[in-house]
Each structure stands twice: as structure tokens, then as C-alpha cells.
Design a protein around this nucleic acid. Sequence first.
DNA 1: GTTCTAGAAC
DNA 2: GTTCTAGAAC
Length: 806
Amino acid sequence: MNLVRKKPKFVVLPLLLLRLRLVFGQVVLSKGLVLRGSNLKMEMMDEDETSAPREGRPVLVILVGAPGSGKSTFGEDVMRSSIRHWVRVCQDTIGNGKAGTKAQCLSCATSALKDGKSVFIDRCNLNREQRSEFIKLDGRLQIDVHAVVLDLPAKLCISRSVKRTGHEGNLQGGKAAAVVNRMLQHKELPKLSEGFNRITFCQNENDVKNAINTYSSLGPLDSLPHGCFGQKNTDSKIQVGIMKFLKKAEVPLSAASTTSGTEDPTSHTLRKNNSYCKDKETLSSISDNANLETKEVEGQEVGSAGYHANQVYLDDIPTLAFPSISTSDFQFNLEKAADIIIEKVVEFANKFRNARLVLVDLSHKSKILSLVKARVVEKNMDTQKFFTHVGDITHLYSKGGLRCNAIANAANWRLKPGGGGVNAAIFNAAGPELESATKEKVKSLSPGNAAVVPLPSSSPLFTREGVTHVIHVLGPNMNPQRPNYLNNDYYKGCKILQDAYNSLFEGFASIVMNQPGIPVGKSENLGRKSLDLPVWSDCSSRKYFTSTDQKSKRGDDHGSEKSKKCKGNQDGLGLAFTNSKDEKVDSEHTRTERSRSKAWGSWAQALHQIAMHPEQHKGDLLEISDDVVVLNDMYPKAQKHVLVLARIGGLDCLADVQKEHLQLLNKMHGVGLKWAEKFLNENASLVFRLGYHSAPSMRQLHLHVISQDFESTQLKNKKHWNSFNTAFFRDSVDVMDEISSDGKATLKDDDKLLSMELRCHRCRSSHPNIPRLKSHISSCQSPFPAYLLQNGRLVNAPGEPRNSVP
DNA sequence: GTTCTAGAAC
DNA sequence: GTTCTAGAAC
């Protein structure tokens, strides 16, 4: 399945009127140039900005394109007619007229930018890695970073490269075709999430001409609107399917055209081709490349399609856009706020891998954005997961091509519209629907708290921007004119701001968890892990916040939201077992009570989540039935390592298992055997063992089906080894016998077992450390101990004599 | 469950 | 100096 989202067709209305919009104190000429400084005296600035120098920021334009795409010509053309001071940094000539290094380009670009000059980086920059260091200059210097993508047909680039003579990069003649082909095969089109403020895609020569005009007419005091421009819809057929898959709100044509159909006449160069791209992902040049009739290029086409599909998916991850809390009207110290934002974002990113945060502010000169950006660079943070964006938080998609499921509102304590700033803008943009939805949900908010409000589908923010939730947040106030004034008590203030971001991010996490429309992973083949995203379990604790402790600690609005969710889980459980007899339900309750005595950390909940809501994890699962779910262990400790997960609630671990579950155990064992046999069909040399950990780390009863090679880099320590190779590991067959005869399983959960000396599971030889043990087992051919060869504890391929039961 | 890292072991 | 473990934090 191709993971491509539909790009709504976009209609640019004829430009009749110049429309000025006043957004948060900044005058924006719709869809055109944002004029600043002397160009537009009426521009309003906030206090922070008045001290800033009244001149445009230097622009770093990273040209992206294959040899022959016209990068150098682009730069030269702009420089010829621009009144701005441009410098072209060309890697092909930077070494005294000869090819130089990336480092030379970086240093040359840095010094030009420091001098206030704008810079073209003239090198292919076809993949993310090649671009990343240039983008990072943004954090150190006060600049805008743009990409201009010369995404012209491969055929054209090749024919130009082949024809030319005396090329700076010495790429000409016959070898050019091969080089261009190879380069395009691995190209990664730039995305805003890499850290670009603006990306312009040019897919034909007319697009290029327009982009040259745009940059040529950029005066020293002007800046170009941020966002993604000029990308065209290339495959509506695939995209419709994906829209369905993602269950995303479509952007109605009428909404799109009316909200962005007005342009600034001064920026006519933008008009023709710079339709705002509605998605940051691209498919653009696949069709171009397909024109080349070589075998290599056929392969490239397939590769590109797969690559792009992944990119689309990565860009489709749940996204929260949030304004900086308390730093505007509430006058909170910017440095302190930036530190807290970074701290909380890092915490969130560690726990929640499959989601993205975007700090948004209106102004290019936003101090808080600069401070945060600098810290992002300093800490070398992953800009896929967190980045800053200049734009209007109520038009992130329609004006900036940035899809956000949720947006945060810097609310007031009464949760009322008005008051100015982000709060007024969001309530305005969302229509009365938000006000009534908010009222229904929660009455007021105290500082440090957040309230999640699902946005009715009739709200313009929903239909136009695809925002499904608004999260109201209230931060600390350092403004004596506003309620809850903290009188500069930054000890309290920081605490409250931390709480505010905690609540905000937890609220966002709860949305992601509960929204079946948001995929948490997707793969075409059941057995294959999807991308680099977590497939399940321990690590997906980063995806889910379900700590019951956290819930009980928090008595705020957000907390009540969560307890509803918790109830929902229980309901879901009930639904899954509608055929259960009443007594079964009762015993479930008692078990639930009992298992509360064991504290499960938030990280230990992932399997439980999957068992309760497997439909939300379809892409990660190998098999789903009424009773069990089968999935690959996220951190396999052997070549093959899958988990058979019981779906019944209240059955957290082996200790909870009773006689009534015997049938379930049988079922789990049967399913486990089936998978072992499947793997044995693929590789008859494997041997499997099926069993339970006496004291599992993860909540929800799960059967390990693990091949006995233990060939895995994930097997790293003594505990890993001993949990599968001491009595701590309870063979499924034994557990079933014990339940059947005694009604309970024997648990060998003494910690001593897990710290025992390391012994080979075949020859029982002892080894001083894990590396030595692993080295030994990689070649040990001894038969397994007699104990394991009995009673079907080991499962091997039929006809494999060496492990057969005597 | 993993990751991180100080300090032990080599 | 490097490798490895084990405990804390999440």
C-alpha cells in the first residue's frame, strides 16, 4: 500500500484586491511578501521586536538539484538583477577555482551571512544529510533558511550535463548520465521539518523563471513568507486511497480557495506557480524519471516510490503545534521559558517517539523562537520530532503546508474567547463550535494545567486546517495586570510552566493514543517492521502515556479527561468479551484488584494497550484474533522472537493465571506453535522454545516464542540471558500442566536467578561475560540438555534429528 | 522493557 | 585505555 496522502486540488482565484490581514500585531499581505522595516511603516511590532534592527535577515538559499538542473544559472540570474547582496557558494569552484569541501562551503557561507549578505549554496544537496549542516547555521545566525528545489525532469538534466563543456564540476559528456541517474536515485526532497523556513519547488522551466523573479525582487529589507510552495499534485489516485486510510479531514476546495485566494500584487511572481503546497511530502519527479528507459532507472522508480511513501508517512505523524506559553502577555522570562520548552520537549520526545511537536510564533523576529532554535542546535535535537515554525497557528496547513492534528491555545482561566493574542485568534478561527465544545468539557483552568477539547467537525479549523483537537493551556503569569500574578516568583513560575507543558504534552499524547485514525505504524508485510518506528511494547511506552499513578496524581481537567479514557479501556474490554459469563466478569474484577498490588511503570503498559486496542496497531501486528494478538518482540533476543499476547483484561502476568484460563493458555500455545512452525518452514535449522517469564516486566500476559540461537544484538546483559535460560523462564507446556493440576503456575521469580552466572544453554559451560558467552554460543554444537528435550519443551523442524526427543 | 553512565574489571 | 556491568531513571 502506498502511503500517500491526498493533496487537495487547489484553485487560485484571480487576484482582485489586495487584502491586508492583521494577525497578532503583524500585517501580512496575504500570500505575498511580508513587508517589514521601511517598506511598511504601519507594521505593528511587539515590545520585543522594537529593539531589533529594522532590516531584513540574510537569507541562506540551499539550492537542491541534480547536475544540469540549473543551480548555478539560478544563482547567477538572481545575482545579476537583485539589489540584495548575494554570495554564491559553489563547492565545484571554492578551492581556488577547483572543487572544494563541504567544510569550506560552510565557512564561506558563515562569514558571508555574518556580514549580512545572503547566500546561495550551489551544490547538489540532494539528501537530508548533505543539507543538515547548512540548515544548522540558522540556529547560530539570525537568518532565514530556504530551499529552492530544481526538480526538473531527469532527462533534461542529463541532456544538459551531456552537452555542456567546461563545467565547473567537470561533469560533462557521457558519464554525466550515469551520475545524474545515480544521484536522483538517492535523492530526498527537502521538507520543512528539516528546519527550512521556506521551500520552493520548481518542476519546469517556467517554475524556475518565477522563482528567479521572486528572489531577484527581494529587497534588502524584505522577507519571503515561510512555508512550502509550488509543489504539484502528482497522483490523485493513490492519494484518495491514503486519505481513506488516514481518515483525514479533506480540505474542501471552496475553503482552500477562499482562504488563500487573495494575493499581494507586488509578488506576482509567486502567483503562477506558488500554490501553497498542502503537503510537505513529494512524489514529483517519479514520473519524470520513468521516462528514462534504462533498467537502472526502472529500479530507481520503484525505489523512489517506496522512499516517498515512507516520507509521506513520516510527515503524517501526529503533530502538535503550540505557541510559547506565558512569554507574551504574561511576560514570563524568555530565557527561562526557552529552557523549560526544551526540557519538556526532550522529555516528551523520549517517551513518545511517534509524534511531533512544533513551536509556532508569528514573527520572523520572535525572540523565543530564536532562543529555542539556538538550544535545538546546541543540543543537536532531532528536527523531525521538534522544530519551530513562523506562521499563524490558525493557518498552519492552508498557509504553511504544515499538517497539525492538534494545536495548543494559550488560554485564559475562564476559557473564554477574546483578550487578543493566540487565544482570540484561535477562538475566532475555530468559530462558535470551539466555545461550545470547550464549555461542555470544562469550566475553567488553573495555571499549570491543560484541557483537551475535541474540535467539532463543523469548525473551520477542522475542515480547513485538519485540526482535530484544541488543547487549552494556562501558564504562569508575571504580568501584574493579569490574574494569578506571581510577583516575579520564578521558583513557582518555572514549576507552573513546567506543569503547563507537561499537561499540554500529556493531553496531546492522550489524543494520539485514542485516535484510531492516526496510524502508529504501518507495514505492507505483516512480519516486517515499519520504518524506524517502534513496533510495540516497551519502547512504545514512549508512544503512550497510561501511567495510572500519573492519573491519580492529577486532579485537574486534564486528569478527568484521562480517567474517562481509562474507563473507555475497560469498556473496550467488556465489548471484546460480550459472550463472557457474568461470573467471568466478576473474577476479572478481583484480578484487577489484585494486580494493582504490583506497580506497573508507565513504560510497562504498551502490551496492555495493544491487547486492549489491537485495531489501533494493525500495522505492527502479525495476527489478531478474538483471544490473542501476535507480534514481533520490539527488541528480539534471537533471530526469531515473537510474543503471543492474551487479549483478556485483568490478566497481567503468570501470577494472575487460574484454571479458568487453561483454554486460553492452550490457545496461546497453539498459536505460538503455529508461528514457530511457520518460521521452521523458512529455516529448518532453528529450534524454538515457548514460555513465560515468571515475573514479566511488561503488563499483560504474553507467551515468548523464541528461537534458541539467541543471535541478536538486543541480547545485551545477564538479565536478558537468564530470563530465557534459567528456571525464571517457565515452559508453556509446564505451565499448562501446573494450571491443570494445581490451578496455579509455579513462579520462579527470585532475582537471584536473573543474576546467576552465565551458562551456555546447550553444553552448560560457564562464561565470564556476555560477549564471551555470545561468542561461545555462536559455535556451540552440543545437544540441548535432556530436560529440554523432554515433554515438547523444544520445537524443531520435522526430520531434524539432533534435537529430537529420545 | 531500554538507555545512560559511573566505576569496576581487565 | 578500553570493555563490561549494574544501578538509576524513565
